[in-house]
């Protein structure tokens, strides 16, 4: 019961993504509390773009982010460690192709 009261009083958590300039991707900037999407957007503007950090904001309520389980990291990521052939570094590129 008391847990419920606490949850009711606390505004939900939101994840904030900022695009620093046109053409670049939105990057995760941090999180904040807000009562709804509109307030989250305004809070994000005030907290994360005060120093000209962005030109576009996405906000997503944190509960909608599905995260991988750190306990499964071994099986999830380690198998990639010895498969360097997945990097395209074994191809001989013609000289005309610069900046690859």
């Amino acid at each position: 019961m008391s847990q419920q009261t606490v949850n009711k009083a606390e505004w939900p958590l939101w994840e904030v993504f900022i695009r620093s300039k046109a053409g670049l991707d939105h990057k995760h900037a941090g999180s904040l509390h807000a009562a709804d999407a509109q307030m989250a957007m305004e809070n994000a503007r005030d907290v994360y773009t005060r120093r000209m950090e962005g030109v576009s904001i996405w906000v997503v309520e944190s509960k909608y982010v599905h995260a991988s389980d750190p306990g499964e990291a071994d099986s999830m990521y380690e198998p990639a460690n010895d498969k360097i052939y997945r990097h395209p570094t074994f191809y001989d590129l013609p000289d005309e192709l610069k900046h690859m």
Partner: peptide, 11 residues
């Protein structure tokens, strides 16, 4: 009242 609004109103 909350951190985010403290920053907002100070802005």
């Amino acid at each position: 009242p909350v951190l985010e609004q403290d920053i907002a109103i100070t802005n």
